[in-house]
Simulated scan of single mutants.
Amino acid sequence: MNTKLHKTAFINSLIVTLALLLGACSNSSKSSTASVKKDLNWMQTSEITTLDPSLPMDTASESQIVDSNEGLFRYGSHSKLEKALVKSEKISRDGLTRTYILRKSKWSNGQPLTAQDFVYGWKRTVNPKTGSQYGYLFSGIKNADAIVNGKRSSQTLGVKAVGKHKLVVSFKKRVPYFDQLLTKTYFFPENKAAVKKYGSKYGTSSKYVLSNGPYKIENWNSGENTWKLVKNKNYWDAQDVKTQIVNMSVQKTTSTSYDLYQAKKLDATNLDSNQAKNLENNSAFHLFSPD
């Protein structure tokens, strides 16, 4: 992350998503450790609706789940696909079997994360009873379409765990972009014990989820406009997460967020077109666009 982030203002229509900004925090070089701000005051333009990885339908929820969880792959700098929880991948010659070897990692409660957590999470997402609107993304995996359409059990999905750290996915057809899909929350692992324990409350509050990513979400309940992202000490790459706390708030208008930015209560703000025009010569002005 830019070590001068607290001086940065972003244009609303072209802003890099918060997920990429926090991802940059976790990938900061060790040489910049001393100059990285240890806490940030940050904003989103809308509320979180759920922290259930199977269910997000809005960018606010999805971005916060991405900041507090992780799948097999992630997007790094310049939107380059890179390995996250996967150590290695093997694709069969016919492209119909992919084998992933997982790195050792833990949930935020210290419990080991295993390949079975991916199996459980994927089967839960494609199960129509879960209510995910994105089960169709699994199309191409054996039996996925039939499961989503209610014609087969979710237990027949073409994914299995072999031991603790090997995940094998079987396809009915080639899906060349499959690794890109694995960056989406719907393909994240889910802790079965937590889902069963919290039941219908799962994902409705930061108290009712587990995290496996660089941050844990704290002090969020459904409908609230503030929360915290706190460094997850059990994250496999915690040594490279330099920012300790991100204080989040929902700011729906750029006039309010800019006032808070000027009062040093926010470390960055989106700008509307008029604000951007007036501030484009300001040394704190930066234009970020997706790579």
Rank of each mutant, 00 (worst) to 15 (best):
Q180L: 14
D52F: 06
F285D: 03
E280T: 15
P189G: 02
S68P: 01
K104C: 03
A84D: 00
A144D: 04
A193T: 14
L40G: 00
G131M: 03
P53C: 07
P290L: 11
S68G: 05
K264A: 10
K277E: 07
V230N: 00
K38T: 12
T50G: 03
G135D: 10
R93E: 14
G121K: 06
I48R: 04
H6F: 11
D94C: 11
I65K: 03
N149P: 07
S88E: 13
T59Q: 12
S255R: 11
S88A: 13
D52Q: 05
A115S: 15
S200M: 05
K4A: 12
K37T: 09
G223Y: 10
S153N: 12
D145W: 08
S68V: 09
D145K: 13
L137V: 07
Y100C: 00
F73M: 14
M248N: 09
Y202W: 06
I91D: 02
K90P: 03
G95V: 13
T130G: 04
V168P: 10
P112W: 12
V209W: 04
S139D: 11
K106R: 05
Y198K: 03
V66C: 05
K4N: 15
V230L: 01
Q133H: 05
P53S: 06
A60C: 13
P214F: 09
S92G: 06
L102M: 00
K172A: 02
L181C: 08
E224A: 10
N219W: 11
S105E: 01
T185W: 08
V241N: 09
K129W: 08
Q111M: 14
S108W: 01
T125D: 09
H286I: 15
N27L: 14
L287W: 12
Q155K: 13
G199H: 03
Q180R: 15
S139F: 12
E224N: 13
S206C: 04
N191D: 14
I15R: 14
L40I: 15
Q111I: 15
N281M: 09
D67C: 15
S61W: 01
V195Q: 01
V86I: 12
R152K: 13
Y235A: 05
N221C: 03
S13R: 09
E218M: 11
V16M: 03
M248G: 08
T125G: 07
V66F: 09
Q64H: 01
A284S: 15
V148L: 02
N191Y: 15
Q244G: 08
K242R: 13
E47S: 14
G199M: 04
E89I: 08
L229D: 06
V159K: 00
N143Y: 13
S28R: 10
T114F: 04
Q64S: 00
T59Y: 12
K160Y: 12
L21C: 02
E89T: 11
I15T: 15
V209F: 04
H78N: 14
G131L: 03
S35P: 01
I15P: 01
K106S: 02
Q133N: 06
S211M: 09
S205M: 08
K106T: 03
S46C: 08
Y100G: 01
